[in-house]
Computed example of a mutant assay.
Amino acid sequence: MADHPGHRIAARRQSRRLTQRDLATAAHLSLGMIRHIEQGTRAPSPSALESIAAARGVDPARLDPAFAGTGHRVHAALPSISAAIAGYDIRLDPPGRRREELRRAVATAVVQRLAAQYGLIAGAAPALLRDTLALLHHSAGEQREDAARLVAAAARCADAVAYKYGAHDLSARLIDVMRWAAVQSADPVLQTSVAYTSAETYLAAHAYRLGQAALEQALDASPAPVTDAAAAARGALFMRTAVVAARAGAAGAAYDHLERAGTLAVGLVEGVYLGTAFGPSSVRIHEVAVAVSLGQDHIGRALDVARAWKPGNEVPAERRSGFYVEVGRAQLWSGQPDAAFESLKVARRLAPQHVREHPWAREDVEKIRRIKRADAESLSAFAEWIGAV
C-alpha cells in the first residue's frame, strides 16, 4: 500500500539517486532484505528501520510514523548526556576531534533539531558535548569564543531532546551550560538567543508570570539590532516572551511583544539565525500560539490565521508541526473535531517525534476519541501511536 514504510524508504533512496545496493551497503543489510522492504512484502524490524534511517541521516519515525523505538533510545541516552555536562566548567583532556570536524557535527545536530529528529541527536549528544566542552577549555582568544558558541549550540540540541522527553531537570542544567558558554563567548547576541531557550524552564514549571518577568529583563539587556542576527535574536525573544505572557494571562503584554517581533521581522528573510528560526512566517505562527495560549476567548484569531495562511518549507519542520498542533487545538475548541484531527495528522507527517511527545496533541486526540463515538480506525491507530489509549 502507498503508506507502507518501504515506499517512503524507496522514495528517499531514489531522491538521493542511490541504488538498492548502495542503501544495503550503507545500512549493513542484505540486498534481498532491502528489496523486500521496499516492495512492501516484508516489514522492516525496528533494528533494520533504525539502520536504514541512520544510513540516510533521518529519524526512523520519518520513514515509519508508527515507529516507537526512538523514545527508548532517547531515555537510554539521557544518563550519558547528564554525565557529559557534570563538570562542564572543569578542564580535563583535549577534545577527540578537530575544530572543523566538531563544527560540522554541531551543524548536523542543529539541522536534526530543527527537523525534530530526536533519536539521532540523543545518540550523538554525549560525545558532542564532551568534545565541544574540551575544545572550549583548550582554546584561547577568538578561538575560545568560537568554541563557546559550539558548546552553546551542542547544549541546545541536547536540551531539545531532554525537554521534549520530560527530563526537565536535565534540561535546566543544559540551559545553565548554555548560559555559561554564552558568557565565555562575550557575545551579547548569543546571550539573547540563550534567553529564548531559557523560557523552557518556566514553561515546564508553569511559572508563567516569573518567566514573563525574566524574559522581559533579558529583552531590556539585549543589544540594539544593528545586524540581521541581532534583530532575529531579539525578535525571537519577543516571540517567546509573547507566548509566556499569554500563558500568564497577560493578553495586552502578549500582543505587544508579538507586535514588536513583527516589526523586527520586517525586511528579514525567514531563516535560521543562531539556531533559531525567525522571520515573518515565524511571527505569524506565534500569532496562533499566543491566541491558543490565551485560551478559548482568543481562538478566533488563531482560526483566522489558519484559514488565510499556511507555513511553507521556509519554516523548519518542528515549527510547522507545532503550528498544526495549535491550530488543531483551536479547531477542537470551536467544535470542529474532524478538522482538528486532520491538523494533527499534518503535524505528524511533518515531525512525528515532535507530535508524539507533545502533551497538547495527546490531550486533544483523547478528547476527539471521546467526541467521535464511531471511533474511526484511523483515529484509534493515531491514538494508540501517540499513547492516548
Results as ranks from 00 to 15, higher is better:
residue 234 R to V: 05
residue 129 L to H: 04
residue 178 M to A: 04
residue 124 A to S: 15
residue 73 R to V: 00
residue 10 A to K: 04
residue 220 D to N: 05
residue 213 A to V: 00
residue 86 A to R: 12
residue 324 Y to E: 14
residue 240 R to D: 01
residue 78 L to S: 00
residue 212 Q to L: 10
residue 321 S to T: 09
residue 287 E to T: 15
residue 182 A to M: 06
residue 273 Y to N: 11
residue 132 T to M: 02
residue 60 P to T: 03
residue 207 A to W: 02
residue 173 R to C: 03
residue 337 P to R: 06
residue 289 A to Y: 14
residue 35 R to S: 15
residue 340 A to Y: 00
residue 114 L to M: 13
residue 201 T to N: 09
residue 90 I to V: 14
residue 384 E to Q: 11
residue 279 G to E: 03
residue 129 L to P: 01
residue 285 I to D: 08
residue 137 H to W: 15
residue 151 V to A: 00
residue 329 R to C: 02
residue 16 R to A: 15
residue 293 S to M: 06
residue 335 G to L: 10
residue 161 V to M: 05
residue 151 V to P: 00
residue 258 L to F: 08
residue 71 G to F: 04
residue 187 D to M: 04
residue 206 H to R: 15
residue 271 G to D: 15
residue 300 G to S: 12
residue 245 A to G: 00
residue 311 P to T: 10
residue 224 A to K: 12
residue 163 Y to E: 08
residue 221 A to Q: 14
residue 284 R to I: 07
residue 368 I to V: 12
residue 64 D to N: 15
residue 12 R to H: 10
residue 292 V to R: 05
residue 242 A to W: 00
residue 315 V to T: 14
residue 91 R to E: 06
residue 277 A to I: 05
residue 357 E to R: 14
residue 384 E to K: 11
residue 161 V to H: 04
residue 273 Y to S: 14
residue 188 P to I: 00
residue 125 A to M: 05
residue 360 W to N: 12
residue 54 A to K: 13
residue 87 G to I: 00
residue 284 R to Q: 13
residue 282 S to N: 11
residue 79 P to T: 02
residue 199 A to V: 08
residue 270 E to N: 13
residue 32 G to I: 02
residue 341 F to E: 12
residue 228 D to M: 04
residue 296 Q to M: 12
residue 325 V to I: 12
residue 224 A to G: 07
residue 187 D to Y: 06
residue 183 V to A: 13
residue 204 A to I: 07
residue 222 S to A: 15
residue 169 D to C: 05
residue 379 L to R: 08
residue 15 S to T: 10
residue 23 L to D: 13
residue 377 E to A: 09
residue 81 I to L: 02
residue 148 A to P: 07
residue 18 L to E: 14
residue 166 G to D: 11
residue 5 P to D: 06
residue 12 R to Y: 09
residue 7 H to W: 12
residue 266 V to R: 15
residue 355 V to C: 09
residue 145 E to P: 04
residue 56 R to T: 10
residue 325 V to A: 11
residue 294 L to N: 03
residue 363 E to C: 07
residue 207 A to C: 06
residue 126 P to Q: 05
residue 25 T to Y: 15
residue 379 L to G: 04
residue 32 G to Y: 01
residue 287 E to G: 14
residue 334 S to V: 01
residue 345 K to I: 08
residue 279 G to A: 07
residue 164 K to F: 05
residue 365 V to Y: 00
residue 162 A to V: 07
residue 140 A to E: 13
residue 326 E to C: 09
residue 216 E to D: 13
residue 331 Q to M: 13
residue 271 G to H: 08
residue 145 E to G: 11
